[in-house]
Design a protein around this nucleic acid. Structure first.
Length: 615
RNA sequence: GCGCUCGUAGCUCAGUGGAUAGAGCAAAGGUUUCCUAAACCUUAGGUCGCAGGUUCGAGUCCUGCCGGGCGCGCCA
């Protein structure tokens, strides 16, 4: 096959031409040139409102400015017509050019400098994952994929809070109830989670609560010494199975106990203590503790003091978080790593470990933390610690991707009370529902098991991604597991449909047919224009760190394709058949379907959804 | 009280200061002798919470108010 020219950047070229016309008019500076698609039903394909933006400074009416631009603009040959509508300057392009452009391969995004360290998941290793964690994982994993695609070096990290109270409670519960091993068929993290919930029920009894408290403290000490690492590890490995099934993978795991043991916490505290903002009050509420005054960086707080070391000498969670953040940004070194697992894709997963080796992890130029919005203040404090340390430049480059909590059928979830639905359960149920639908709609499916898995998990992931992160979402089975409408399966179905046509084309030996782009009709044009928006959608999603932008785009793309597919002539005959189209037009449509299918697949993979060949 | 955040169709949500505010679900109707009907096409449904302001232009930016969510621990 001949090497194909890569796709032109139409908007950029139009902007360029506009800028030159503005220069010809004698201007030396102007507001940002915006080129947008014309609304449906308006004449032209693209337009610019630049004349309206210039009206005041030029003391001229917008249509007049637009007309002058029109007379002075030098446009590429693929612009068929240029005209003024109201204050807009609109461009109508050669349909053949637009359609061909959509079929040309997208050039790769240029590589960006500066490593991004993205932390997500960071689930307490003490129970199974529930739907509250689901949003975090989907957001973080998708954002990592999107950032890599647009050229950023990305390191994905998952923090293991192995010295926390929650892990201690779970491990204590196992011993307390004399539990040995999970019964057959019960996943390890679920089994531990049950013990955890049971422990909290027992703690309602004040008498038991005292002994439990003492035991938990003991476990906490042993955890901090790293002596229960294998116990935590068993839970973590069970949790990882859920993350892998969702399609999430990581580069490294960082264990909290390693941060403490390698002395990073001490180093961070030592560094901070050089600041006059970090001190030990002699009297008052904070007597004996080491505190940090955040008031210069977080104004308006009633109490700006943050405790780093408690008066009993133990460190707070935030102090450890600060040490981690210092390590992420290269202010501290000393963590050692070794291989931990081989992930489903084949990529290695590394973990901090006492017997590991130094490796070039961390030292990032920018960090992204995917953490729910309730912890905004805590993360703001970590950011402030970088300023206390005299590094406002670094503070500026740590980003908190804050997402709102997930309700469960309208109720707030609670891990301790056991008001949760596990991620494993949700995926199982989703896959079950898909299989039921498949049995009905496509009983001869060649590979129902694999496809149902891809579709069911895809439905769950997409449901978590289609809404903006800062909006609270309510997880409802009927909605999240729906296969119709604004869903992952809708996009997947569009992909499978396109694949079906291409398979038939190949069987019929039509694959090499030449495309005659001059035969393009308004149907091809409409679809091509949506395909052409893909790179912009990805870049918007990357710039705003908002995967939902891409999810929304994919829904539009799938809708445009389904419309094309179902288009009818006024007599009710199919208007856009591919395989039975006239010579040349058929080649064109095949090219377009190929491009569409490729775009859908690429988009789905950036959201972490698989693209089933048959549904 | 202070801070953050949300308020768009009956419900769930899109909508980087630009043209007549769009989808899905729910409702009503229609489309398979045709490449997968998990789809498509109609119809109906809106004081974009309220009031000011900035702007040639505001759902989008600013201020105030109303209503919902969250945060402000020697908890993690």
């Amino acid at each position: 096959m001949a090497v194909r020219a890569s796709r032109p950047d139409i908007k950029s070229q139009l902007k360029e031409a506009i800028a030159q016309a503005l220069e010809t008019l004698g201007l030396s500076e102007w507001p940002e040139i915006v080129v947008q698609e014309t609304p449906v039903g308006k004449e032209g394909d693209y337009g610019t409102p630049i004349a309206m933006a210039l009206a005041r400074s030029l003391r001229q009416a917008p249509p007049q400015i637009a007309a002058e631009l029109l007379h002075n603009i030098q446009l590429p040959p693929w612009v068929r017509r240029t005209f003024v509508v109201g204050g807009y300057l609109n461009f109508e392009l050669e349909p053949a050019f637009l359609v061909e452009a959509a079929t040309q391969p997208l050039p790769p995004f240029p590589a960006q400098k500066g490593k991004v360290l993205l932390e997500h998941t960071s689930v307490n290793p003490n129970k199974e994952l529930h739907v509250g964690h689901l949003r975090n994982i989907c957001l973080g994993d998708s954002l990592a994929r999107i950032l890599r695609f647009v050229g950023h070096p990305v390191e994905v990290m998952n923090y293991i809070d192995d010295t926390g109270r929650q892990a201690a409670e779970s491990l204590f519960a196992l011993g307390y109830f004399g539990l040995d091993a999970p019964p057959p068929g019960v996943k390890y993290d679920h089994w531990v989670g049950q013990a955890y919930v049971r422990l909290h029920q027992a703690m309602d009894d004040p008498e038991k609560k005292a002994t439990i408290e003492q035991g938990v403290q003991e476990i906490l000490h042993r955890l901090e010494e790293g002596r229960l690492r294998d116990e935590v590890d068993k839970i973590l490995r069970a949790q990882l199975q859920t993350m892998y099934r969702l399609g999430a993978e990581y580069d490294l795991l960082v264990w909290e106990s390693d941060i403490v043991r390698e002395g990073l916490l001490q180093q961070a505290l030592k560094a901070l203590a050089r600041s006059p903002l970090v001190f030990r009050p002699r009297e008052g509420k904070y007597a004996g503790a080491l505190v940090m005054d955040t008031s210069p960086f977080i104004p308006g707080l009633e109490d700006p003091y943050l405790v780093l070391l408690r008066s009993n000498g133990t460190s707070t969670y935030t102090a450890k978080d600060i040490a981690l953040q210092f390590w992420k940004m290269g202010l501290l070194k000393g963590l050692c790593f070794r291989p931990y697992d081989t992930q489903p894709s084949g990529a290695p997963l590394y973990s901090t470990h006492p017997e590991g080796q130094p490796m070039p992890f961390g030292g990032a130029d920018e960090t992204i933390n995917v953490v729910d919005a309730r912890q905004s203040h805590a993360l703001r404090v970590v950011q402030a610690s970088l300023e206390v340390e005299g590094r406002p430049d670094l503070a500026q480059r740590c980003f908190h991707l804050a997402y709102e909590t997930v309700l469960l059928e309208g109720r707030q979830m609670s891990g301790r009370k056991g008001i949760v639905v596990s991620v494993d359960e949700v995926m199982d149920e989703a896959v079950r529902r898909v299989r039921a639908v498949m049995a009905e709609k496509n009983p001869d499916h060649p590979n129902p098991k694999e496809a149902a898995e891809q579709i069911g998990v895809g439905a769950v992931r997409f449901a978590m991604l289609k809404t903006e992160a800062k909006k609270q979402i309510d997880f409802r089975y009927e909605q999240a597991l729906s296969l119709e409408g604004d869903t992952g399966p809708y996009v997947q179905y569009a992909y499978a449909r396109a694949g079906s046509i291409l398979r038939k084309a190949e069987e019929q030996g039509l694959f090499q047919e030449q495309a005659d782009f001059a035969q393009a009709t308004p149907f091809e044009l409409a679809l091509a224009k949506v395909i052409l928006r893909f790179p912009e959608a990805v870049q918007d999603a990357a710039r705003n760190k908002a995967p939902h932008i891409l999810a929304q785009y994919l829904l539009e793309l799938a809708a445009a394709w389904n419309s094309f597919y179902n288009a009818k002539t006024p007599e009710g005959r199919p208007a856009t058949p591919v395989l039975t189209a006239p010579l040349g037009l058929r080649g064109l449509r095949l090219e377009l379907v190929r491009a569409l299918r490729q775009t859908l697949k690429q988009g789905l993979s950036l959201l972490g959804l698989q693209a089933p060949e048959v549904m």
